[in-house]
Design a protein around this nucleic acid. Structure first.
Lengths: 349, 349
DNA sequence: CTGAAAGCGCTTACAG
DNA sequence: CTGAAAGCGCTTACAG
């Protein structure tokens, strides 16, 4: 069933001029107020430096003409853009939402605007995108994950722009870093399941880099604990509910006696819960399920989902503080932070 | 259980100079290659206009110096930023993800970069943000929803920047529009449930503007169909799974005989499904559930979720085409598009 | 095929 | 408290 477009509304108004009239400039405001351009600039930036009478005249002119300062021109001259650019792999999951919001809020409080670009999980376009970002000369760059390509690293390093890599860790950060070890996270989840008596472990994982690192930590820990190698199901990132269902089905085909599954995302885990229920498997009785992300629904599912929480808000706030400090010429005392993770114990495992 | 930060890695490298060295400029490349600046510019933009020998020398200099053109300076002179800015209420749900991705892809194909800003559902900061956006003089602006504040409208109109309002409709668009009528959508869902024999309807809705319009259309249709007024549960946007659970609980308290619920988001609907299951209510037997958004998990839940689909990909592509055409000086023949919606019939209703 | 001059719209640095 | 001049790093418009 679908609705046909409604041709009656909205009405097409008269078309705008295709070549828009030029925007109002400082020059025009200055002329109208009978002052110099620099005085207008001061009224807008440092009003205390201007006499009250002059200020009033200028403000009238600004309002009358609808003047909106051209921040690009100002930024070019002052080499301060007040703009921070952040790259995220995807805006479709909820995983990065917390960070995006706290980054936006914290930087806004420090006088910066934040804009996000979507990269995708494929690294192919990364260098090109980094070039476009650096070309805009933002006051800071926040990256999700660490940069591997030599070209990308060179570009960022040479730019002199403050950079924060997030959500991951590396012995060779480009500049600043707020992350965690996904290997150790995988190890911890394995130990957690083992401590609760699970012996036939499995992993359903997205094929992105950080998920792969979690899987590796998990499998290595299983090996050290003397367990048989966990069964693996890889699915293409970004991961989905459907993949959780088909992933569990395939897993039970390959390793029918599996008693615990670690999923690389909560959405996969939700799919696993759905599939288990339709098969009459009890969770956690027959199968323990652990997710990753602690996205909003995890706490209120039935059974509630045991998962791993990364403090996205703290990542965003820390990255914001790093960038703002640097942009203001302060030095950042400890520019590399491991924010760790926590396993949130709930009903599913 | 949580992991302490690991102090051993990554090692802090020697601190970067707090005042970064100035970036390489066109001047330096030109000097090294022994040509004028304009020749370097041409090698980068229109290489066919330059002799092969010169081109090679310039390219060597560009590579050797790691030159990254300053797009801000270029944009100031040419008044073409090749940048489109888009505003979304939230990046936390999946609802706008499809649009964000298709907008990014389509505009990238036309030579534009897209950056997203997060607004929040509260309109309070909107004007301030619009001012910051207009101040950057992008080649286009994509908005989620329509702009109501007179100040915001004036600002955008006066800027002369191509603007596309999306996801909603209005008789008075600022410029271009790709949206749909949420009232008509609500009506259609009501008619759908009525046609399937449901008579005691209810709505659990986020308190954002578009959700409220869906609710209004739904309730008015119920009135025209001679049904009693649907029970209403309002929850603060952005909506969540937890709100779906508590919302259904409150609803059944207030209107125990409810036989169908329209939820303003699929995430709410998932919460309703969870709550219904824990209460031993069968869906759709005891209770029909309809969502909104058709986000990824809707098709593979058990029961699968009947919902309303908006073609976010098409919104993004259409908005991209509108902006790119305008930026290239073409006129847009039909700048107001109603993309409609479709009810996706599945098991839950 | 190549270049010298001017200018995009601001802010800096200096002067008074 | 206010302003004239210079300049941020490019591209345009013109010339040869």
């Amino acid at each position: 069933m679908s609705a046909p477009p409604d041709p009656s509304r909205p009405p097409d108004p008269s078309p705008l001029p295709s070549a828009a009239r030029a925007a109002v400039t400082l020059r025009e405001v200055a002329d109208r107020a009978g002052v110099s351009m620099i005085t207008v600039s001061r009224v807008l930036k440092t009003p205390a430096q201007v006499s009250e009478a002059t200020r009033a005249r200028v403000q009238e002119a600004v309002a009358a003409l609808g003047y909106v300062p051209n921040l690009v021109a100002g930024g070019l001259r002052s080499s301060r853009s007040h703009l921070v650019m952040a790259l995220v792999p995807t805006t479709r999951g909820q995983l990065f939402g917390e960070m995006m919001q706290s980054l936006t809020d914290a930087l806004h409080g420090r006088g910066f605007q934040v804009m996000f670009g979507e990269v995708g999980y494929a690294a192919s376009r990364e260098d090109e995108l980094l070039r476009a970002i650096v070309g805009r000369r933002p006051d800071g760059i926040v990256l999700t994950g660490v940069v591997h390509s030599p070209e990308g690293r060179r570009l960022l390093l040479a730019s002199g722009i403050p950079v924060v890599e997030t959500w991951d860790t590396t012995p060779t950060p480009i500049d600043m870093l707020v992350g965690l070890s996904h290997e150790r996270l995988g190890e911890a989840v394995c130990a957690y399941l083992h401590a609760r008596g699970r012996r036939r472990l499995a992993v359903i994982s997205g094929d992105d880099e950080r998920a792969a690192r979690r899987q590796r930590g998990f499998s290595e820990a299983a090996h050290r604990l003397g367990l048989e190698a966990p069964a693996l199901q890889w699915v293409p990132a970004p991961t989905s509910h459907a993949q959780g269902r088909t992933g569990l089905a395939a897993l039970l085909e390959a390793a029918p006696r599996t008693d615990a599954v670690f999923c690389s995302s909560d959405m996969l885990a939700l799919g696993v819960l759905t599939e288990a229920r339709t098969r009459g498997l009890s969770v956690p009785g027959d199968l323990a399920v652990a997710g990753f992300g602690d996205i909003e629904f995890a706490a209120t599912l039935a059974p509630s989902l045991t998962t791993v929480r990364i403090d996205g808000t703290r990542i965003g706030q820390t990255a914001a503080a790093f960038i703002a400090d640097r942009a203001e010429g302060l030095s950042v005392a400890r520019p590399h932070v491991d924010i760790g993770f926590s396993i949130v114990e709930r009903e599913s495992a």
